[in-house]
């Protein structure tokens, strides 16, 4: 009944083997990195855009790069937020089947889900190499930053997603239910 984030109560209940504690620490670390990255990007864009609006209306001059900064920072905000959501098990899913299944079958289903997530995340990373290579050639015009710095956010996000799913998978094998049932936590619309 617990989300995967933070100090995992399930792990504690199970006597918290050092390995499980290590995995809980990994998930916690990833979630924290997501928070720091996302909040920093959000705050920076807020200040830059607000300053630009004020300058434009009050002094008829803006910050030219204010219109381009999101090209690098929005992907990182999204990536950070996505890592937080994954660590807390709050990506939106249709959990009907998981609700019906009980006991061992339920754990088997969770194992299948985590394996699928790992395959998809690694697949995206592996198949995306040509695009990453291409993005090294492109420079944002007013910022002078290479596009690849923006794409790097997706590498971070999907690597973290795969790691988090791996940690959850190990927990499932130890008999821990990793699904979050609270729909309020899965808010989206």
């Amino acid at each position: 009944m617990t989300g995967a984030g933070g100090p995992v109560p399930g792990a504690a209940r199970k006597g918290a083997s050092p390995f499980l504690r290590l995995l809980a620490g990994l998930t916690f670390l990833l979630e924290s990195s997501g928070k720091v990255i996302a909040v920093a990007c959000l705050a920076f864009m807020f200040v830059a855009l607000l300053t630009n609006v004020i300058l434009r209306y009050a002094f008829d001059s803006g910050i030219p790069w204010a219109y381009e900064i999101h090209a690098v920072l929005l992907p990182w905000l999204v990536a950070g937020g996505l890592v937080i959501a994954s660590a807390r098990g709050r990506n939106i899913a249709i959990t009907l089947l998981a609700e019906i299944l009980q006991g061992r079958k339920r754990l088997v289903l969770q194992a299948i889900i985590q394996v699928t997530i790992i395959i998809i995340a690694l697949g995206v990373l592996w198949s995306g190499q040509p695009i990453l290579k291409a993005s090294r050639f492109q420079t944002l015009s007013t910022l002078g930053i290479k596009q690849v710095w923006g794409y790097a956010s997706l590498v971070y996000a999907f690597a973290a997603i795969a790691l988090i799913a791996f940690a959850d998978l190990v927990r499932v094998f130890r008999g821990i239910d990793v699904m979050d049932h609270d729909p309020e936590n899965a808010s989206l619309s």
Binding site: P130, I131, F137, Q138, L140
Partner: peptide
């Protein structure tokens, strides 16, 4: 342009501004 370099599409009629980033 990223798509063309990465082999996702083959040809694009593009713009001078975007090309000058490369």
């Amino acid at each position: 342009l990223t798509s063309a370099t990465g082999g996702v599409i083959q040809v694009t009629a593009n713009s001078q501004g975007a090309m000058s980033q490369i």
